[in-house]
Amino acid sequence: MLRVKPIENRDYELIQKAEKVIEDNYRYGRHHIGSAVRTTSGNIFSAVHVEANVGRITVCGEAMAIGKSISEGEHEFDTIVAVAHPHPHESIEKCWVVSPCGMCRELISDYGKDTDVIISYNGQLVKCNVMELLPEKYTSDTE
């Protein structure tokens, strides 16, 4: 059973930042996921995912937001979220929160085991620690 926490007002701001970055930059076949990360200092960094024709080299929105944060000198993370933008052929009208993929779960946990992730769970938005989403995380012998 996943241990979850209710989201707070400041988490809605994080979701809105993720929605804004993808709404401003959505391009069919190029960018359809937006992400935002809040650092422990309270700053928010948002970014879109970068799609590639060869799927293996696509860079997820969470990785882009974390990279943007780190590039600006912020290395400690509080909460992260990703949202999907509807495609033109879909009957969905607005963005929705999506869970991080497996590689993003690894990346988020590599850079902050205490980082919370906003997800949709049992029909509602909640937060959980990234390690809840990645049981038995891979570690090297040096960790």
Results as ranks from 00 to 15, higher is better:
residue 1 M to H: 10
residue 1 M to V: 02
residue 3 R to E: 07
residue 5 K to H: 15
residue 6 P to A: 12
residue 7 I to R: 02
residue 10 R to I: 02
residue 13 E to N: 11
residue 14 L to C: 06
residue 18 A to Q: 09
residue 18 A to L: 06
residue 21 V to N: 02
residue 22 I to Q: 05
residue 23 E to M: 05
residue 23 E to I: 05
residue 26 Y to D: 07
residue 26 Y to Q: 06
residue 26 Y to K: 03
residue 28 Y to S: 04
residue 30 R to H: 09
residue 32 H to Q: 13
residue 39 T to Q: 06
residue 39 T to A: 08
residue 39 T to W: 01
residue 40 T to D: 09
residue 40 T to F: 09
residue 42 G to D: 01
residue 45 F to Y: 15
residue 47 A to Y: 07
residue 47 A to P: 04
residue 50 V to H: 10
residue 50 V to G: 14
residue 54 V to I: 04
residue 55 G to P: 15
residue 56 R to F: 06
residue 57 I to R: 15
residue 59 V to S: 06
residue 63 A to M: 12
residue 63 A to T: 04
residue 64 M to D: 01
residue 64 M to H: 02
residue 66 I to S: 11
residue 66 I to F: 07
residue 66 I to T: 13
residue 68 K to Q: 11
residue 70 I to K: 10
residue 71 S to G: 13
residue 72 E to K: 06
residue 73 G to E: 12
residue 73 G to K: 04
residue 74 E to F: 01
residue 74 E to Y: 03
residue 75 H to W: 09
residue 75 H to P: 15
residue 77 F to P: 13
residue 78 D to M: 06
residue 80 I to G: 10
residue 81 V to L: 11
residue 81 V to Y: 03
residue 82 A to Y: 03
residue 82 A to Q: 12
residue 83 V to R: 03
residue 84 A to W: 11
residue 86 P to C: 01
residue 88 P to W: 10
residue 88 P to N: 15
residue 89 H to F: 09
residue 90 E to M: 15
residue 91 S to D: 12
residue 92 I to W: 05
residue 92 I to E: 05
residue 92 I to R: 05
residue 95 C to I: 08
residue 96 W to Y: 14
residue 96 W to T: 05
residue 98 V to Q: 02
residue 102 G to S: 06
residue 102 G to Y: 14
residue 102 G to V: 03
residue 103 M to A: 14
residue 103 M to Y: 12
residue 104 C to G: 04
residue 106 E to T: 08
residue 106 E to Y: 08
residue 106 E to R: 14
residue 107 L to M: 15
residue 112 G to Q: 02
residue 113 K to D: 00
residue 113 K to Y: 00
residue 113 K to N: 03
residue 114 D to E: 11
residue 115 T to M: 02
residue 117 V to Y: 00
residue 117 V to G: 00
residue 118 I to A: 03
residue 119 I to N: 00
residue 122 N to K: 15
residue 125 L to C: 00
residue 125 L to G: 00
residue 125 L to Q: 01
residue 128 C to F: 06
residue 128 C to D: 09
residue 130 V to A: 07
residue 130 V to N: 11
residue 131 M to G: 09
residue 132 E to P: 04
residue 132 E to S: 07
residue 136 E to V: 01
residue 138 Y to R: 14
residue 138 Y to T: 08
residue 138 Y to F: 12
residue 142 T to K: 05
residue 142 T to A: 02
